[in-house]
Computed example of a mutant assay.
Amino acid sequence: MTSQVPLTSWLLSATPNALKRATAHPFLASAGRGTLPKSTLSQWLAQDRLYAQSYIRFIGLLLAKIRIPAQRANSASPLKPSSEQHAVEVLIDALVNIRTELKFFEDTANAYGLDLTAISAEEGGESLAESGSGNITTSAGISTTGSGSCPGSTGVARGNQNNSPAADAEGEMEGVKAEEHRLCGAQGECQMQAGSDICYPPSPRKPQGGTNVVEREPSLPPGGRPASAAPLERGEPIYFAATSITHAYIDMFMSAGSTGISLLEGLAVLWATEVCYLRSWRYAASFLKLRGGQSQDDADGGALRDKFIPNWSSVEFEDFVDRIGDVLDEMAGETKGSEEAEMMRGRCLEWWRQVVWLEERFWPAMD
C-alpha cells in the first residue's frame, strides 16, 4: 500500500517527468555554466524576492493552524514533543531563514550590480501571442497548454482510487481529461470545457429574455496591460510588479494557508517548494565542477558562482529541507485509518503537482 511509503518519498516518485523539467531547466544550466546575462538574472531575482516576501505570510498562516497541547499541572513528567511542536520549531526556523535570505538578496545584488526591480518581458507588455507560444491563461494568469497541462490535473480520473506512483506516471503520460481537474476546479481556476483537452475560457453567456447584461472589462495582467495592447510608446512608464506566474505562486501560498486546508497539506506545499528549489540549484551546481576560469568573467559578474549557487545548494539548506520533510512524514504517519490516509495523500499529491507545475514556469524562458 502507498501509505507504507513515507509521504515525501511517495511524492518525489509520483511525477518524475514533470519534476525533471522543473529542476533541470535551461535557465539553471546557463546559470551553472556562467552564461546567464546579468539582465536575465536580475529579472528572475526580482520575482524570486517577491515570492520570498509572500513566504513570510504563508508561514504565519501555517503557524496559526497549530494548537500545542498544554502541560498538565499534575503531570509527573513533561509531555513528549508532538508533531505539532516539531512543526512550530521548523516554521520558526523558516521565518528566521527567510529574513536572512532577503538580506542576502539585497547585499549580493548591491555587490554585483543586480537590479531587484528589473522589469520582465511580460511586464513590459510582450504578450504570449507575440512570442508565438500560443498559450492560453486562466484568470490567475496560469498557462494551461503545453507539456505541463493544467496545474490542477491529478493525472488520475475521479473514479480511480489507485494513487500509486506507477498509476500517476501513467496518468501523466495519457494527457489531461476534464475529470482530472480537481484542484484547479476547487480553486476556481479550471476553465476546461466538456469534450476538450485543454483549459480555455467559456463563451460569454447570451442575454436571456431581454435582460440587460453588462459585460465586465477583462482583468489586466500583473504588468497592468492587456495582452492585446498596442506596443508601448517611447517614454511611456512601465511599473515593476509580480508576473502572472509569481502571482499564481503567491495565490497558491494563500490558498494552502487558508482555513479550510489542513496543516499537513500546508507543510506539504512548504516542503515541495523547498525540495524543488534545492534540487534545481544542485543541478546548476553540477556544472560548476566542470568549469575553469575566473568568476568575474561570467556573464553575471560572478554572483551565481560565488554567492547564489553555493548558498542554495549547500548542505545546510539540505538539512533544513530534510527537517521539513521529517515533520511532514511524522504528521502523515499519525493519520488514522487507511482510507483517510489515502485521501490525505491524494490531496497532498494535488498540491505537489501544482508546485512542480509552477516551478517549471517560474524560471525565465531561454532562447
Rank of each mutant, 00 (worst) to 15 (best):
D298A: 10
D298Y: 02
A299S: 06
A299I: 05
A299Y: 00
G301R: 04
G301W: 02
G301D: 00
G302Q: 05
G302E: 05
L304E: 08
L304D: 12
R305H: 14
R305I: 11
R305C: 12
D306N: 14
D306V: 11
D306K: 15
K307G: 15
F308V: 10
P310R: 10
P310T: 12
P310W: 07
P310C: 10
N311E: 15
S313R: 12
S313Y: 13
S314M: 06
V315A: 02
V315K: 05
V315N: 03
F317K: 07
F317A: 01
F317T: 05
D319L: 03
V321H: 03
D322L: 08
D322P: 03
R323I: 03
I324S: 06
I324G: 04
I324H: 09
I324E: 10
G325D: 11
V327Q: 01
V327G: 03
V327H: 01
L328N: 00
L328F: 03
D329H: 06
D329Y: 09
D329C: 10
D329V: 13
E330A: 07
M331A: 02
A332E: 09
G333R: 07
G333N: 11
T335I: 08
T335N: 05
G337H: 14
E339W: 14
E339D: 15
E340G: 08
E340R: 15
E342W: 13
M343H: 10
M343V: 10
M344D: 00
R345H: 14
G346L: 08
R347I: 11
R347K: 08
R347N: 13
R347Q: 04
L349E: 13
E350P: 00
W351H: 02
W351M: 04
W351S: 00
Q354K: 07
Q354F: 06
V355P: 02
V355Y: 00
V356I: 06
V356H: 04
V356W: 01
W357K: 02
W357S: 04
L358E: 00
E359W: 01
E359R: 08
E360D: 04
R361S: 09
R361D: 06
